[in-house]
Design a protein around this nucleic acid. Sequence first.
RNA 1: GCCACCGUAGCUCAGCCCGGCUAGAGCGCCGGCCUUGUAAGGUAAAGCAGGAGAGCCGGUGGUCGCGGGUUCGAAUCCCGCCGGUGGCUCCA
Length: 945
Amino acid sequence: MSQDFISMLNEISEKWQRKWEESRIFERNPEERQKFYTTVAFPYPNSPFHLGHGRTYTTCDIYARYKRMQGYNVLFPMGFHYTGTPIVTMADDVAKGDKELIEIFEKIYEIPSSVIPKLSDPLFMANYFKEEIKKAMKELGLSIDWRREFTTIDPEFSSFIVWQFNKLQSMGYVVKDTHPVGWCPVHNLPVGMHDTKGDVEPEIGQYVLIYFETPFGYLPIATLRPETVFGAVAVWISPKDKYSVVEVDGKRLILSKKASFRLSFQLDLKEVQELTSEELQKVKAVNPITGREVPIIPADFVDPTLATGVVMSVPAHAPFDYYYLKKSKLELPIVPVVKLDNTDAMARDVVEKENPKSDADLKKLTELVYRTEYNKGKMREDVVDLVKPEYREELKEIAGKPVPEARKIITDFVVKKKLGKQIYEIMNKPVYCRCGNEVVVKILKDQWFLDYGNPEWKAKTKKLLSKMRVIPPEVRKDFEYAIDWLEKRACARTRGLGTPLPWDKKWIIESLSDSTIYMAYYTIAHKIKQHKLHASQLTLDFWDYVMLGRGNPEEISKSTGIDKSVIEDMRREFLYWYPLDVRHSGPDLIPNHLSFFLFNHSAIFPEELWPKGLAINGFILYEGKKMSKSLRNILPLRKAIRMYGADVIRIALACTVDLGSDANFTDVGAKAIADALRRFYEIVTAHYSGDVMGKPERWLLSKFNNLVKEVTAEMGELDLRGALNKVLYEMTSNVNEYFEMVRAEGREPNGKVMKRIGLEWTKLLSPFAPHLAEEIWHKLGNETFVSLEKWPTYNEAEIDVKLELEHEFVEQVIGDVRSILNVFKGTPTQVMIFAAGKGEMEKLRKAIEVTSSGGTLKNLMDQLRPSSKEEARTLQKIYQMVISMPETIKKMASYDIDEYQVLKENARYIEHKLGLNVTVEQFDENVRARYNKEALPLRPAIVVQ
RNA sequence: GCCACCGUAGCUCAGCCCGGCUAGAGCGCCGGCCUUGUAAGGUAAAGCAGGAGAGCCGGUGGUCGCGGGUUCGAAUCCCGCCGGUGGCUCCA
């Protein structure tokens, strides 16, 4: 039963994990041997691991184990990422008694209720989950060198980050700039997704303000569609709010009170006067682009909290405007400015046609108009005639332009002429901070950025990418795109755990910025611990020498008090492991972490130390669905390992689909893997008493050698799915086939051959299912670790293609007989097989030759010149047969095979498989006459009685 | 909206790059091996009725999302459409 087997798997897994740890075989130091250095993005311990986390680590481990068996000195280290806000936020939530979160911790992750209150301390949470994750990693059988473990808030690691940022700073890659962020006006803090109600990311976009002149000052209409300003025939204001006159950039602007509060976070503004909407309605406004004087009208649909609380009215292109203007019975013209194929005033058309009943209906129509005009609209040629004479020349080019281009032209014009400006707004507003206040946009001044837009830096990074191996190859273009697209990126925040920015300590270096070159830190992390070095000793000079070979170790030794030999040893160790050979990750990290990883390596390290490979794997679904808190379908990794066994989980996560695809973990799938492993175990550990070395043995060895050859190639390409399929399924069916073959000969499987194959086969399984492989390896009488054994090589001399083809031929004949039996009426007792004569093979070869070079039946006849009608008919049949013949059987024709002999030799096997008496004879004219059957080459005549 | 990837058996997926193999694999499903009962005094079970955890043997299963086009020939190449998933910056 598979459950018993899984229990056994769990027992042996624990045993072998312990033995690996005791013998320290995965703790690697520099050696003469060639190295292989691989890493996975380190985990962020704000929850235990679930199934999905396991895939990348397992993929990396399987490849690491394979490389190790190939003779490389393999290093696979691990650390923990404490930097950033989510741990802090989550701890806060626990402190606040967040029911959902606590329920997930208790019910899904089965965290003891005595521990839960302690999780309100962020450091306790991080440490607790770190240990939890570490256990999961060990239980999964990952071959990690744990001596090198660290966390990103260790002071020693901080000294390394300080060094990195000093380097980036000196290269001019760190810049100061302003930056809009979501902001809570009460907390006075930036607000990210984790800080909002319902975990909504505040989306920040830009509105264009255009200043309409009034006697009180300028009315800044706010719009996402500045290109329609030519068609503005009125200005809407809100009757629900008062208006303030404020001074901005030396101009007087009129904003709703609420807007003025919100905008005070991004504009330097001073209130000078208060107005009611009634006072405003009494005056007129002048469109600064057209010079047209327009009325100011109150409207309920105007949201005084959005942007400036002032909106222009463009009835030709805005359904709200058309609808409410019509309702207001004001005689205002409709001025169309954007043309489509079938209309010039889409808003009017859709409102008339759809007859909206509510603001919600109007909103839908607005989206439709907006989308259609944006994608298909062009500016009318005559918009220029609407423009004030003094601007006409400069705006002439806008005529006929598609909407997106026109929008850019008018925006630039307005900003340049100071007829308006751009402001930021929360596009998905309202977004609320967890404290309940609505989030606004704040312009952060003096924010620190990493300037990924720097062209020189981009060029260097692209060069790095071009020299790097990327698996699967399709994702390379995602990286090219991401590198092109990245611009300035904020690299410091005001809260969270992490390393303070060295030259401006109120900022904490942000989590995606302090995790870009830490792979270099692993190479010497254990030495820092071993020599008990203090962070204060790890100076800029120290890191300059260890990482870049700059400076004099003697002087550094003096200034830091670290032994010169220790410093030099660390430099040597770094150079031994670096560059990184392969980094494994999920696709979510392509546009950020992995791209930053490339950028920072290209900046800091010389070309010969640039990373050499990236492998990107897909996600894990659970029973066809993405795991999520809301679906409550999270399966914790440690629980899954208990349920199915580590080896089963490894295979289910990493080997059921190809690398780049998402894998679906299912209960039945996992049990099927357990069954397959059990079959493997039973076959390999059984005792076989035969000693005959016959054709079946040679066939099996040939198959096995071929398999080793193919699997090795697939492992090299990280085609774990293909490799595992062959190792676990294909080989098992080969062995079963072999058992059939010897059974047909009435004998036992050959013990020596089975032992030899069992050992080699176990090695092939070992990267995938290391625990079971170790157990079998020892059961078979070995004292060593199979994890450290040499990966099997194939012996070309044992590959007998002809023998394999012969067997395939026999299988094909058996298949043919079966299909005849399927339609045979009555009870069959006897099968007669008549093989075609040897001479016929020549015709077949010729036919294959002719068809594969594109020839026709006529060409074949011309070449062979049949001497009789009979022969011509046979040729025709051969020709037809070749057209639908499998490649492998075609290939057989190129070997000198005596099919009569082959069938004769395999007659007992065929009998055994069919359970019927079988005779094999040469085909001749008598047979043709008697049974009215024809034997073609490799297609013997079959008669069932 | 834009970009990327995907749509093949009941399910999970190969095959597509580079057109031609009988479109494959695993799981599932069905049948058999197994088992219980059933004839006249006993024995025997073809048939019939029922039971089966695994295993073994055999079998079943597909308008290749839809519509056009290129070609002697399309799951494969091209175009359009429909459906799904992910990404689109300060979030780890």
